[in-house]
Simulated scan of single mutants.
Amino acid sequence: MNNVVEIDGEKAVIAFDPEIRMLRGEFVGLNGSADFYAENVHDLIAEGRKSLAVYLDMCREKRIEPRRTFSGRFNVRLSPDDHAAAVIAAAAAGKSLNEWIVGAIRDAAETDHPRPKA
C-alpha cells in the first residue's frame, strides 16, 4: 500500500492536505488520535515519531491501553445484487462466503496472514 507507512511499529495512513499544502499522517489501530503534519516525507516521519511518543506517554500516564482491540467481526451492508454476486463468486471459487470475503480483504489490504483452509 503506497499511502501507508510504518513508524516505530505502528502503521499510519499518509495523505496530502491541499488546503494547507502539507502531508498529513494519521496512525490507525490506536485507541485515540495521533496525527502529524509536515511539508516533506523526511520531516513527516520525524513528526510521526514525536506524535506517537507523546501519545504513548499520555497513555502510560493515564493507564490507557494505547491500541485498539478487534473482535474479528464486523457487519457489511451492500446491495442485494452485490450480495448475490459475492455468493456466486465464492461458490465458483469453492469457498464459503466468509472464506471468500476474508481472502478478498487480505488481497486488498496486502496482508500476509495465512489463508483459511477451504
Rank of each mutant, 00 (worst) to 15 (best):
S33K: 07
A109G: 12
A84G: 11
R68C: 06
R106W: 09
A86S: 11
I45L: 13
E110D: 14
I45M: 03
N98A: 10
E61N: 09
S71Y: 04
R67G: 00
S79Q: 07
N98F: 12
Y55G: 02
L30C: 03
G29Y: 02
R73F: 03
L44S: 05
A90G: 08
D43K: 13
A46W: 00
E47G: 09
M58W: 11
R68Y: 00
S51Y: 02
A104Y: 01
F16R: 12
N31A: 12
E61G: 05
P66F: 03
A34Q: 03
E39S: 13
A108E: 11
G94F: 09
D57R: 12
L56Y: 04
D112R: 13
R24L: 11
N40W: 09
A46L: 13
D82C: 06
I88G: 00
V28A: 01
E39I: 08
I45Q: 04
G48W: 01
A108W: 12
L52E: 01
L56M: 14
A85Y: 06
L56S: 05
L52D: 02
H83M: 07
V41C: 00
D82V: 09
Y37S: 08
I88D: 13
M58H: 12
F36I: 04
G48Y: 02
R21W: 02
K50N: 11
R21D: 15
L52M: 04
M22E: 15
R68A: 10
R21Q: 15
D107L: 12
N98T: 14
E110L: 14
E26F: 02
K62T: 03
A86D: 01
A90S: 10
H113F: 14
R24Y: 06
V54E: 14
F74W: 00
F27I: 03
D82K: 08
E26N: 09
A90K: 03
P18Y: 08
E61F: 08
V28M: 09
A90F: 05
A38P: 07
C59A: 07
E61Q: 15
L23C: 06
G29W: 04
